[in-house]
Nucleic acid binder design. Structure first.
Length: 561
RNA sequence: ACACCCAUCGUCUAAUGAAAGGACAAUUGCCUUCUAAGCAAUAAAAUGUAGGUUCAAAUCCUACUGGGUGUACCA
C-alpha cells in the first residue's frame, strides 16, 4: 500500500513534487484506486486544474504497478495493477504477521501517559471508563510506533474530600459496614456529610482541619486515609484485571505530598508569586489566562495545582519523557492550560505536555455524579453485558467451549468498543440499549468476523503460504479486501498522530464489513486448490489485521464464539 | 458577565478545505453451502440559521439560535 503511494510520487516527480498525504482514496471504483486532486497545482502552473490533470494523465509513463491513469475533472486517477497490489499487500502482511503496522518512528523516545486516575473512596463508574480505555488504547498504539511508554495512574487520593470523609467516618462511621461494601458505604457517609454540612458549616471547617492534619502526617488521619485508599485500590484493581489494563506506577496525588514544600519554594524562587487573601497564587494574566493558580491555600494546605506541578517536575526529573499525555476530561481544560503555561514559564517546552481531552459522558441528559445519585457502576454495565452475551451464546452456540471466558471477552470488548468507536472529543450519552446491543458497528461484529476466519482456518488441511499464483484473484471484492488490509499501517500512524483510537475502530468496522461481503460471495474451502490457497491467504491476512487492530484497542479476539 | 466546546438522515455516528459514507430502527429475501452476532435487496432520509473567505466549506471566519462545560482556596 505504502509502496503504491511511493510509486505514484516517483511517477509524478518529473512534473510535480507531491506529499504522500495528498494521495486520496476515491469514493467509488469508477474513479480508480488512488487519486490526486490537482486544484492546488493550479497556482503553481497558473493553469486550469482540469487541464493540469489531463496533461499529467497524458504525460505519465506507467510502470508495472499501474494499468491506467486518467483525469476525471480536476482529479488525476490511478488504476493499479490489481494482481501486483494484492501480491504486495498480502505478502507483506503474511511475512510480518502481528508485527505488521509496527514502526520505528518512536524508537528511543519516551512518552508518559497519565490516565484512568479515579478518585479514591468513590465507585468506579462507567464515565471513568473513558480515561481508562482511551489511555490504554493510546498506550498500545504508541507502543506500536516504537515509543517507550510509561503508564501512570494519578489516583485522586488526596485533597479536602478526604477531610470530609474522615470527619464523616469519625461522626457516623461503622467499621462493620465498611468491611461489607467499602466504597458504597464511604459514598453514603460522604453524601450524608454534604447534607449535614449545609446545615452546619462548622463541619466544613472541621474537614479542612482534618485534611491539614493529614498533610502534616498526623497518625489518626493517616491511618484512616490508608485504610480508605487500600480498600478502594483493591476494588479498582479488580476492574483493571478484568479489562486487562496495567500500570507502571500508581503515583497518585498523595505521592507528591512530601515534594510540595520544595515545589512551592522552587516556584517562589523562579517565578513571580503573590499573596492574595492569605493564599499563595501565581497570576497568569500576562499569558491571557484570567484565573490565577492557587499554589497554597490560605490555611497552608496544598491544591491540585500544586500537586500537578510537583508531579510534572518529578516525572521530568525521574523519567525525562519526550511527552506527557494527560488523559483527562474536557471540563479540566482550563486547569491544564494553566498548568502547561506555568511549566512554560519555568522554562519547559509547552508542547511536551498534551491534554488528551475527551467529552463528557452523560446519562439521561446530565453529567453523571456520585453525589446526585445519577450514576452507573461499571460493574453493573459489565455484569449486564456479560449476562446478555451468555444468553446469546446459549441461543446460538450452546456447545461452545470455555463459554464463560468468551462471554467475558465479548461483553467487555463491546463496552470498550462502544466508548472507543466515538471520536474522543464527542460527548457520549450512555444508554443501556446501546451498551447491550451487539449488532452492527460493535466489537462483537469484529470479533465474530475474526472467529469466522479462525473457524475456516481450523478446517483446512492446506498450509497457508504466500507462494501462490496471484493471478487467480478475479473478483472485485478480493481486490477491495486486499487494498483495505494494506491501509492498516497508515491508519495506525494517523491514530497515533492525532491520539485518536476511533480511527482504528472505524477502520476495523470497514475491514470487517468488507471481509463479510467477501465471505458471503466467495467460498474458500470448496474451491479448487490454487484459488483455495489464495483465498486462505487472504483470510489469514484479514485475521492477522483484525486481531492486531483489536489488540490496539485493548480488546480480545476469541477464536471461537 | 466572561471564556471554551458542541450542532450531520427518525436515532447513533464517519469524513488531512476537494467526489457527504456507515450503523440502528422499518419491509423483504438467504442457514442439508466455510459460524445468520452474518449477507443481500427495498424504501427512504442529514451538514441548526444568516452572512463571509476560497476555484472548492460539514470542515476556516463573523453573528445569531439551541445545548453543554468552566471561571481563586473541590479535583
Amino acid at each position: 500500500m505504502i509502496k503504491f503511494k511511493e510509486e505514484i510520487i516517483n511517477l509524478l516527480k518529473p512534473f510535480v513534487n507531491i506529499d504522500k498525504s495528498l494521495i486520496e482514496n476515491p469514493p467509488n471504483a469508477e474513479f480508480g484506486d488512488y487519486s490526486i486532486p490537482c486544484f492546488r497545482f493550479s497556482k503553481e502552473f497558473k493553469e486550469d486544474p482540469k487541464k493540469i490533470a489531463s496533461d499529467l494523465a497524458e504525460k505519465l509513463v506507467l510502470n508495472k504497478f499501474f494499468e491506467n491513469v486518467k483525469n476525471i475533472g480536476a482529479y488525476l486517477n490511478f488504476f493499479v495493477n490489481r494482481e501486483e497490489l494484492i501480491k504486495n499487500n498480502l505478502c507483506e502482511i503474511f511475512k510480518r504477521k502481528e508485527d505488521y503496522g509496527s514502526q520505528t518512528i518512536g524508537k528511543g523516545k519516551t512518552i508518559i501517559i497519565d490516565f484512568s486516575s479515579p478518585n479514591i473512596a468513590k465507585p468506579f463508574g462507567i464515565a471513568h471508563l473513558r480515561s481508562t480505555v482511551i489511555g490504554n488504547a493510546l498506550y498500545h498504539i504508541l507502543s506500536k510506533l516504537g515509543y517507550r511508554i510509561i503508564k501512570i495512574n494519578h489516583l485522586g487520593d488526596w485533597g479536602t474530600q478526604f477531610g470530609k470523609l474522615m470527619v464523616a467516618f469519625d461522626e457516623w462511621g461503622d467499621d462493620d459496614k465498611l468491611k461489607d461494601n467499602a466504597i458504597d458505604y464511604l459514598v453514603k457517609i460522604y453524601i450524608k456529610f454534604g447534607k449535614k454540612a449545609k446545615e452546619n458549616p462548622g463541619l466544613d471547617e472541621k474537614a479542612r482541619e482534618s485534611f491539614k492534619n493529614l498533610e502534616k502526617g498526623s497518625s489518626k488521619e493517616v491511618k484512616y486515609w490508608k485504610h480508605f485508599r487500600d480498600l478502594s485500590l483493591n476494588e479498582f484493581c479488580k476492574y483493571y484485571d478484568r479489562l486487562n489494563i496495567s500500570f507502571d506506577y500508581f503515583q497518585g496525588e498523595s505521592f507528591y505530598n512530601d515534594k510540595l514544600t520544595d515545589t512551592i519554594d522552587f516556584l517562589k524562587d523562579n517565578i513571580q508569586t503573590e499573596i492574595s487573601d492569605n493564599a499563595l497564587i501565581i497570576k497568569l494574566e500576562d499569558k491571557k489566562i484570567k484565573t490565577p493558580m492557587i499554589i497554597q491555600k490560605s490555611d497552608g494546605a496544598s491544591t491540585y495545582h500544586t500537586r500537578d506541578i510537583a508531579a510534572a517536575l518529578y516525572r521530568i526529573k525521574e523519567y525525562n519523557p519526550d511527552k506527557i499525555l494527560y488523559v483527562v476530561g474536557a471540563p479540566q481544560k482550563l486547569h491544564f492550560k494553566q498548568l502547561f503555561t506555568l511549566l512554560g514559564m519555568i522554562g519547559y517546552d509547552e508542547n511536551r505536555f498534551i491534554h488528551i481531552e475527551f467529552g463528557t459522558m452523560t446519562y439521561e441528559g446530565v453529567m453523571m455524579s456520585t453525589r446526585e445519585g445519577n450514576f452507573i457502576h461499571l460493574s453493573d454495565v459489565i455484569d449486564k453485558a456479560i449476562k446478555t452475551v451468555r444468553e446469546i451464546i446459549e441461543e446460538k452456540n450452546p456447545d461452545l467451549p470455555e463459554k464463560e471466558k468468551i462471554a467475558e471477552q465479548i461483553g467487555i470488548g463491546a463496552i470498550i468498543f462502544g466508548d472507543l468507536s466515538n471520536d474522543r472529543t464527542n460527548d457520549i450519552e450512555f444508554s443501556w440499549e446501546k451498551a447491550l446491543d451487539f449488532k452492527g458497528e460493535t466489537a462483537p461484529y469484529i470479533q465474530y468476523t475474526h472467529a469466522r476466519i479462525c473457524s475456516i482456518l481450523r478446517k483446512t488441511e492446506d498450509s497457508i503460504s504466500n507462494e501462490i499464483d496471484f493471478s487467480i484473484f478475479k473478483e472485485d471484492i478480493e481486490f477491495e479486501l486486499s487494498k483495505i488490509l494494506g491501509e492498516f499501517s497508515t491508519i495506525v500512524e494517523k491514530a497515533a498522530l492525532e491520539y485518536k483510537p476511533h480511527i482504528i475502530a472505524t477502520f476495523l468496522i470497514e475491514l470487517s464489513q468488507t471481509f463479510n461481503k467477501f465471505y458471503n460471495s466467495c467460498n474458500i474451502l470448496k474451491e479448487y486448490k490454487d484459488l483455495r490457497k489464495g483465498r486462505l491467504l487472504l483470510a489469514e491476512c484479514t485475521r492477522i489485521i483484525l486481531k492486531n487492530g483489536l489488540s490496539l484497542l485493548g480488546i480480545k479476539a476469541p477464536e471461537n464464539m
